[in-house]
């Protein structure tokens, strides 16, 4: 029983750090770079991914024995696209400002490699409770990374975090940080720091 519990805990925590989709597997970099110009945008994108990934993984895991191997990818995509469209319509109907800020990147979650990757690598091979735990871990890891990246860029680029002014009045914002080059610089720095911490902890990539 205890080993069962630890393995479930492992399925959850691996997505947070050891197999973090952005920092360790370098998946889903397009939304990571494109929408993290503020903490709110990073978090909203993360929440949309949590919803899509958890729902898709649950369903795929449930129907994993029915779907023939040859058509599994088209089936995955249909399932993912359905949930993504639901998420996109929900945002447009109830949170129009966020929907406007995220623009085309919500519909583009369909082609986010993290989602298809988890279906192919995990959900289609594991029972439903494990698939859910795995999906939650991965998407929360993704969300945390995007939120931290968004916070860092917003802090330097706009002097605030979650729209709350942090820096003193006299602080001159680093405009580049909320522009596309700032995304590359900040992500590169973050991956560098993650690798450095891992080398200290003795975790191999």
């Amino acid at each position: 029983m205890s080993s069962f519990k630890t393995s479930l805990a492992h399925e959850f925590t691996k997505g947070l750090w050891k197999e973090n989709p952005v920092l360790r597997m370098l998946l889903g970099l397009c939304p990571t770079l494109a929408v993290t110009n503020s903490a709110v945008n990073g978090l909203s994108m993360g929440l949309a991914v949590i919803f899509t990934l958890t729902c898709s993984s649950t369903l795929i895991s449930l129907i994993r024995n029915i779907v023939p191997k040859q058509v599994r990818i088209p089936t995955f995509i249909i399932v993912i696209a359905t949930f993504v469209t639901v998420a996109d319509r929900t945002l447009a109907a109830f949170f129009p400002t966020i929907s406007k800020a995220l623009g085309p990147y919500v519909p583009l979650i369909v082609v986010n490699c993290i989602i298809l990757g988890r279906q192919e690598a995990f959900a289609s091979k594991n029972p439903v409770h494990r698939a859910i735990i795995d999906a939650l871990g991965m998407s929360i890891g993704f969300t945390l990374t995007l939120t931290i990246l968004g916070m860092f860029r917003e802090l330097l680029g706009a002097g605030s975090i979650f729209n709350l002014p942090i820096m003193p009045e006299s602080f001159d914002t680093w405009l580049v940080m909320i522009l596309p080059p700032g995304a590359f610089l900040a992500l590169g720095l973050m991956i560098g720091i993650a690798n450095w911490i891992n080398s200290k902890l003795g975790i191999k990539s």
Partner: peptide, 19 residues
Amino acid sequence: MIIVLTIAAILSGAILSVY
């Protein structure tokens, strides 16, 4: 294969049109 894909597509279409 045909049945599974058809059902998936029909269900998806149905859910999305309702939503």
